[in-house]
């Protein structure tokens, strides 16, 4: 149901772009107005969300230590899993962000008769998440060729690298295959893993379907529908967009507008969705705090003034017992005390 709705929503977006862009005058809306709007919403929204997070303080230093802390000289410190300095935190974060360290740890627990539980390493999610994210990154970087004139050398390097296997003509990019495989796995996993299926929301299926469709339309343009589009006009438009004086030629091709409109939809959707994990992963306190909270005092800006139940109050209540038991007191018993 939830995944079907995601397909419907994306089909609707495709139809809007396909039909809409055929109406005279509308290519400008789809080719210029929407992209600018989408970029504005994306940048504005992304910054807004990060600022909103940053506005809340980190009142305590709550790390999740995943290894031995720095303590005595003869106890070997695990610098990456229980970082003690800023450099070690940076290394831990880099490992997390660039290699998905925590997912790498993933295990699969299984119940057996007895009862007995077994834990097996389970790296599928880690592998396919890596394939997906790095393919996506590579694709975005490759697209810089469309916005920059002349094409920078590093984009050409990336293209050469991405097309290393020289399969087909035009040569297939690994990242194009990678993103389809990655998204395909993530989607299939959501449907077939009972636990994940049970927790999945429309919010989880929709971005996958959207990204999948963006990739498909892109692949169609590059490999299969080359004659339906005019790459010169497209480049003119995209470079114009980047230079802030866009011009739009005729006959760009509907498939291009569909692709572009879906990208716009993704950009607009991004800041208001779970896709913000891209920003959040940098700011998660359990990973980016130092494990030195006993060595260096962490400050809480809203630390309330709360005093303990005072020793004086405690002694007042129990003084007699304390004196009887020979426990030292601050104030001796009064010389005379009313018998009660």
């Amino acid at each position: 149901m939830k995944y079907a709705l995601s397909f419907l929503a994306v089909i609707a977006l495709v139809l809007i772009a396909w039909l809409g862009s055929q109406i005279p005058g509308m290519p400008y809306i789809f080719g210029v107005a929407f992209p600018y709007l989408a970029i504005a919403v994306f940048l504005g929204g992304f910054v807004y969300r990060v600022v909103q997070w940053a506005k809340s303080p980190v009142p305590f230093s709550i790390q999740t230590t995943c290894g031995q802390a720095k303590s005595l000289d003869f106890i070997k410190h695990n610098k990456l899993e229980a970082p003690h300095t800023t450099a070690q935190v940076v290394a831990r974060m880099a490992l997390e962000i660039l290699t998905f360290r925590s997912l790498f740890r993933n295990t699969h627990a299984e119940m057996h008769q007895g009862p007995k539980i077994t834990y097996e390493s389970s790296k599928w999610l880690w592998i396919f998440a890596l394939i997906f994210h790095y393919s996506f990154l590579l694709i975005i970087l490759r697209h810089m060729r469309l916005f920059l004139n002349p094409v920078p050398f590093w984009v050409q390097w990336l293209e050469t690298l991405d097309a290393l296997f020289q399969v087909g003509a035009p040569t297939w990019y690994m990242s194009d295959v990678g993103i389809l495989i990655g998204v395909g796995f993530l989607f299939a996993r959501r449907l077939t893993n009972v636990k994940v299926r049970y927790i999945s929301l429309l919010n989880d299926y929709f971005p996958l379907v959207l990204i999948f469709t963006i990739a498909i339309t892109g692949i169609l343009m590059r490999y299969f529908l080359r004659t339906d589009i005019d790459i010169v006009n497209i480049k003119q438009l995209t470079v114009g967009l980047a230079a802030l004086h866009p011009t739009i030629g005729s006959d760009i091709g509907a498939i291009f507008f569909i692709h572009l409109f879906l990208v716009c939809a993704l950009l607009v959707y991004f800041p208001y969705s779970k896709l913000m994990h891209m920003g959040g992963v940098f700011m998660s306190p359990t990973r980016n705090m130092k494990n030195n909270s006993r060595e260096v005092r962490h400050l809480n800006p809203w630390n309330p003034r709360i005093l303990p139940h005072s020793y004086a109050g405690y002694e007042d209540e129990f003084r007699e017992f304390m004196v009887d038991a020979g426990i030292p007191v601050e104030k001796e018993l009064p010389p005379q005390k009313d018998e009660e």
């Binding site: 969300r49 997070w53 809340s56 980190v58 636990k195 927790i199 989880d204 779970k274 359990t286």
Partner: peptide, 27 residues
Amino acid sequence: DKFRSLKIFMDCCVRCGACADKCHFFL
């Protein structure tokens, strides 16, 4: 407003399910 962690934890979960079978209460 007091805990950044709460905001981040509310916003960032992608429901990947890596945590699902890690909890002793769930198991």
